[in-house]
Design a protein around this nucleic acid. Structure first.
Length: 507
RNA sequence: GGCCCGUUCGUCUAGCGGUUUAGGACACCGCCCUCUCAAGGCGGAGAUCACGAGUUCGAAUCUCGUACGGGCUACCA
């Protein structure tokens, strides 16, 4: 590629941005917006930019910024330009760009496209109240300071009078048509827009101004963001026009609701990405689920790995209506990702880390006995919804030689006549098997146990149930052969003997 | 109040004027497999496409109203 070609490519490249405010953790709604931006950029060989919109210094924190960055990394959404990696249009934190906004705002004042306003918040509030009580159609700013003589206004500013800067919505602007990639053309009448504030009296820019300056400076071509900004878009279009910058394409995506159909909030449980990470969801499954919440690939696909998403995402398949967050489906998708792992992979990525985390195994345990862990993975994997489940699913392994037996389980399986002969027969069969030295494997164990119920004239349910309770103390466990192989002969026999003893003492 | 957006099974969605007795997925129910619990296989129930008019030979799909939900109307983002 020649330099001029490279230049053309960059100029034509799609550039999108995700611009969270660090006023809290990364929310699932924000995460989905980030995913759509990222996927749209990747699918179109575009550039994905991360910008921190911290124009509100009172609510923004560095800690939240770091949490958001961490969440983005966990989601696997890599950015090409951003606060930590830099880029040609930085800085990428709004707090570091205030001089730029000030300059842009003053320039608009100079050009007569914006003006100083000396109205106090109290006056404005009173005006709004009056308009509201009079039930006036238009309840916005009345434009009092618009008529001020510019020279006089400048003098008042120079004299230190508190002031804001308001943009002038051009007289007779007519309809502002927003070209929205998901909603189509949305028309607003500029008459309904008032001269809104672009710069506060405390010398900070407002959101509607700062984002436009940044999006223009950063050559953003597509603004993909939440629905709640749709009504603000005509205001931003006015700013683009005042700045004489091209207006990007917008794509307003709907919000995510809680299971009661209300806006997602704390009382719906986990709402931040961080919480889902801590609850041990697979990052890719989480991204998959969120991507599908408001976007579809076709009429049947539900499993979309991250790389496929990055190839296939398109804005025209984004749906307009709000979506309800369904943790059951998230769980199911998560499970599908776990199921898709090989046993070795599952042992390495899920079993090892989770068991180490729970203090059940030592770091590096898998390499010591890879086959045992692969077998364990094969029985645990289909029973795992999320990674953290493996701790309870493997609990039977760590119960020692005389597991505590749940009362309910004892009463149901061991407190009956068939229990003792079942255990005795199983014990002897297993010991014989071990003596044969042909290998204490699941298949052989199953073969050794299989004929016993009939020989003893005991139902299979009662027979295996008795062993299950003896070995685990509970009524639920992995399949018998595998479980016994995992426990090994020594522990198995010890547990059966302990159960027999308990039967004796109880009887 | 004004302006804007949205409305297909409980949930996520497919559907872009006839191919639809509205398709798929989650959840639910049943059967099969089976020593328990899963996983897997098969099947079932579940949506008069918010409602009402209109356009059309024909509408979930186009238009207009109504209702309900949401957003904006801040010196929040």
């Amino acid at each position: 590629m020649t330099d001029s070609q490279a230049m053309t490519a960059t100029q034509n490249a799609i550039r999108v941005r995700f611009a969270p405010s660090p006023t809290g953790k990364l929310h699932v709604g924000g995460a989905r917006t980030a995913i759509y931006n990222w996927a749209f950029a990747r699918a179109n060989d575009g550039v994905f930019i991360l910008r921190i919109d911290d124009t509100d210094p009172t609510r923004s924190t560095e800690e939240n910024t770091q949490i958001i960055l961490r969440a983005m990394r966990w989601l696997g959404l890599d950015w090409d330009e951003g606060p930590d990696v830099g880029g040609p249009f930085g800085p990428y934190r709004q707090a570091d760009r205030v001089a730029r906004y000030k300059e842009a705002a003053e320039k608009l004042v100079e050009e007569g496209k914006a003006y100083y306003c000396f109205c106090t918040p109290e006056e404005l509030e009173a005006g709004r109240k009056r308009a509201h009580e009079a039930k006036e159609e238009f309840q916005g700013y009345n434009g009092a300071c618009r008529k001020l003589d510019p020279a006089e206004a400048k003098a008042r500013v120079a004299a230190g009078e508190p002031h804001t800067i308001r943009i002038k919505v051009p007289e007779g602007r007519g309809d502002v048509v927003v070209d929205d990639a998901v909603h189509g053309q949305v028309t607003f009448n500029a008459k309904e827009l008032d001269d809104f504030i672009i710069f506060r009296s405390d010398d900070t820019p407002t959101y509607n101004f700062a984002t436009v300056v940044d999006d223009a400076d950063m050559r953003i071509t597509h603004v993909i963001r939440g629905d709640d900004h749709l009504s603000n878009t005509p205001r931003q279009v006015i700013v683009y026009e005042a700045l004489k910058k091209p207006v990007p394409t917008f794509a307003h995506i709907s919000m995510i609701l809680g299971e009661d159909g209300k806006k997602l909030s704390k009382r719906h449980g986990a709402t931040s990405v961080e919480e889902y990470q801590q609850e041990s969801y697979e990052s890719e499954a989480f991204v998959n689920y969120l991507a599908l919440l408001g976007w579809s690939f076709d009429d049947k696909t539900t499993i979309i790995p991250r790389d496929v998403l990055a190839r296939e995402f398109s804005l025209n398949r984004v749906s307009k209506n709000p979506a309800t967050f369904d943790s059951k489906k998230l769980n199911w998708i998560n499970e599908q990702y776990l199921l898709a792992m090989t046993d070795e992979e599952f042992a390495e990525k899920i079993l090892g880390p989770q068991l180490v985390l729970a203090g059940k195994e030592e770091e590096g345990c898998i390499s010591l006995r890879p086959e045992w862990f692969a077998l364990l993975a094969s029985v645990i994997k289909p029973r795992t919804k999320i990674a953290g489940d493996v701790v309870s699913l493997t609990e039977f392994l760590y119960k020692g030689d005389a597991p505590e037996i749940e009362e309910k389980a004892f009463n149901k399986m061991l407190a009956k006549e068939s229990a003792k002969p079942s255990l005795v027969a199983a014990l002897s069969a297993l010991q014989t098997l071990e003596d044969k030295a042909s290998g204490f494997y699941a298949d052989a164990i199953n073969d050794a146990l299989a004929p016993l119920p009939e020989e003893l004239d005991i139902s299979r349910g009662a027979f295996y149930g008795a062993i299950r309770v003896a070995l685990t103390g509970t009524l639920v466990s992995p399949p018998m052969g595998e479980m016994i192989e995992l426990l090994g002969c020594k522990s198995t026999c010890a547990r059966i003997e302990a159960a027999l003893e308990k039967i004796e003492t109880t009887a």
